[in-house]
């Protein structure tokens, strides 16, 4: 199961992490460790607690108990703006972008805090090229298709040049072609950056996954390579037969 890792190789870690909503434990004591450079997928059936876990990893909600350690520092009570400055880039499930301003300006706002006003321009150009967004540069974001908005948001997270990127269902609502491009992009970014992905789409996970962590009823049910997860009997059972993983 989960392998023993060297302390200094760990970038993100949770210790006895718990979150209760009323009497319900959405997350019931999770110990989780992520090595630098890893590409980790978090999966699990609906209500397994992966979204709650994601929100705690990114300090968007506070745990009831336990710690979230990023580079050895407890971030569970940090302010949202501190999270990004520490080097954590977040993309939530719903596109979280600026609809009323242009693509260019969206990216500029993302690049500015890290690179400063001047270098931010160059960074925006670089992102526009890498994501092939040059043609829609001056369009208002609100007027774009869902997939394009997701990409712009991905570009915004890249502009932060974070040490780690956390993505909640990055391909939700994307076409197959867009999903494939996203998978390729995630793998490319993973060469320099640690990535955590929460995903439903098994096809997509097979394309990118390194190690997969399976959540079930607020706990980690299994953690292994995709091939062995697919063969895991307990995982198959929580997914109601085998259809979800076939």
């Amino acid at each position: 199961m989960s392998e023993v890792v060297r302390e200094d190789a760990v970038i993100l870690e949770t210790r006895a992490l718990e979150k209760r909503f009323g009497g319900v434990s959405a997350i019931a004591g999770v110990d989780f460790a992520l090595r630098r450079g890893e590409l980790r997928c978090l999966i699990g059936p609906n209500g397994a607690g992966k979204s709650t876990f994601f929100k705690m990893l990114t300090a968007q909600i506070r745990p009831s108990k336990g710690q979230v350690l990023f580079d050895g520092r407890d971030i569970s009570r940090a302010h949202p703006h501190e999270i990004s400055r520490l080097g954590i880039g977040i993309k939530n499930q719903v596109p979280d972008v600026y609809d009323g301003i242009t693509v260019d300006e969206n990216l500029w706002l993302a690049a500015h805090p890290r690179h400063g006003a001047r270098a931010a321009r160059a960074k925006v150009d670089d992102i526009l090229d890498r994501l092939e967004l040059r043609d829609i540069r001056w369009q208002l974001l609100g007027a774009l298709a869902h997939g394009q908005r997701q990409w712009v948001e991905f570009g915004m997270v890249m502009a932060l040049e974070p040490k780690i990127i956390l993505l909640d269902e990055p391909t939700a609502g994307m076409s197959i072609e867009e999903t494939n491009r996203t998978a390729a992009l995630i793998r490319e970014v993973n060469r320099t950056t640690t990535i955590v992905v929460v995903e439903h789409d098994m096809q997509f996970i097979r394309q990118i996954a390194d190690i997969v962590t399976v959540f079930h009823q607020g706990r980690i049910l299994a953690e292994d390579t995709m091939a062995r997860i697919q063969a895991n009997q307990a995982v198959r059972e929580v997914y109601l037969g085998t259809s979800g993983l076939a």
Binding site: H81, I90, Y98, G100, L109, A110
Partner: peptide, 24 residues
């Protein structure tokens, strides 16, 4: 100015602005 642009960013989406590292 950057200050003005960030203000417009806050108007558009305060949470995203904070996640980008601005103390809104």
């Amino acid at each position: 100015t950057p200050f003005g642009r960030v203000l417009v960013g806050i108007r558009e989406n305060e949470r995203r602005t904070e996640l980008l590292g601005y103390d809104a």
